[in-house]
């Protein structure tokens, strides 16, 4: 069961009768907290503590030199009026809601083609999976900068067939598209998850459907897709959360600027510029909380919507 499945189906267990713990239970409890000690320390010092601190900082003006100065909601009001920030939200939303569905459709399509006990399955799976391991690296971003550049590989190839290309990265109307292509290119990881999901569908369902005379299309629509919905949901949530946090590619491809004309200015990139180039730590913290809220809202909406389209077999 995936992390999401566990979370969505967690129920409040029946409260045990309140009675003093036995000696053995006390011992187990002590042992538990020893085992958990590093994780609990991390949770407090590396995660929850800093979260609380950044929430506090989001209501302050802080540049690392002077102590933080409380300014109430000013950072949040400023965000709503910050045209570059609003633009970065638009860029990020476009990126997430165009490239993630495309990536998942590619992943599902390839998984369906590959899931027939065919020869060379392992070979194809490796080839298609490799890009998703490399895609997040600076090296691939470097490569993208070249191939979509003015005299890069794409334009050279286009010239062969007589099409005149353009500076895909230098042109504000296409720069974001090159990053979307990069994200779609990394469909391998969700594809592997789809493959595993397809394998869990008992073959007897298909056998029974064939006996009843159901066509391949009908089998696909009535068996494969419904039984795969939990996996689709899992991939969707995970990829959306990941895509909202994309940073490296936009940073390297645009040389850290988010250009041309802010067309690749991801929200995270703008946050980095505010926080770690301009050292506006208060404003950057407010931005981080906005990002957290956006991600939480979309994950929550996904969970709500999943009640209507995700089908659990058990």
């Amino acid at each position: 069961m995936s992390a999401l499945g566990e979370l969505s189906r967690m129920k409040r267990g029946p409260k045990g009768p309140k009675r003093p713990l036995t000696d053995a239970e006390k011992k187990e409890e002590r042992a538990s907290y020893l085992f958990l000690a590093p994780w609990l320390l991390g949770l407090g010092l590396i995660t929850i503590g800093p979260m609380a601190a950044s929430l506090y900082l989001s209501f302050t003006d802080y540049n690392l030199l002077q102590p933080p100065e409380w300014i109430g909601l000013d950072n949040y009001i400023r965000m709503m009026q910050d045209a570059r920030l609003l633009n970065s939200l638009k860029v990020t939303f476009l990126y997430v809601f165009i490239s993630v569905p495309l990536q998942l459709v590619a992943a599902l399509a390839l998984a369906l083609v590959l899931d027939r006990g065919m020869r060379g399955l392992g070979f194809y799976r490796s080839i298609y999976y490799l890009p998703s391991l490399l895609g997040g690296s600076v090296a691939i971003a470097v490569l993208w900068r070249q191939i979509f550049g003015n005299s890069g590989l794409i334009n050279q190839l286009l010239a062969v067939v007589g099409i005149e290309g353009r500076g895909w990265i230098a042109d504000p109307s296409t720069a974001l598209g090159t990053l979307m292509i990069l994200n779609v290119w990394t469909f391998g990881a969700p594809m592997i998850i789809f493959l595993a999901g397809l394998r869990q569908i008992p073959t007897m369902y298909y056998e029974a459907a064939s006996v009843d005379g159901a066509s391949k299309v009908r089998q696909f629509a009535s068996i494969t897709i419904p039984l795969l919905t939990p996996i689709i949901f899992f991939n969707l949530v995970l990829q959306i959360i990941g895509a909202f946090q994309s940073f490296t590619q936009a940073f390297v491809v645009s040389g850290g600027t988010g250009g041309p004309s802010d067309s690749t200015m991801f929200f995270t990139l703008y946050l980095y510029q505010r926080g770690f180039t301009n050292f506006e730590m208060g404003y950057a913290s407010a931005m981080a909380w906005l990002l957290l809220i956006i991600i939480a809202v979309f994950t929550f909406l996904n969970f709500i919507a999943s009640k209507y389209w995700v089908f659990y077999d058990d």
Binding site: P50, M51, A53, W289, L292
Partner: peptide
């Protein structure tokens, strides 16, 4: 604690990085 642990998987690093950097 288990539920908290699962949720931290999905937590964006940005919301902790500024205070981490300061500390």
């Amino acid at each position: 604690l288990f539920a908290i642990m699962l949720m931290t998987i999905m937590l964006p690093i940005h919301v902790v990085i500024v205070p981490q950097y300061i500390i």
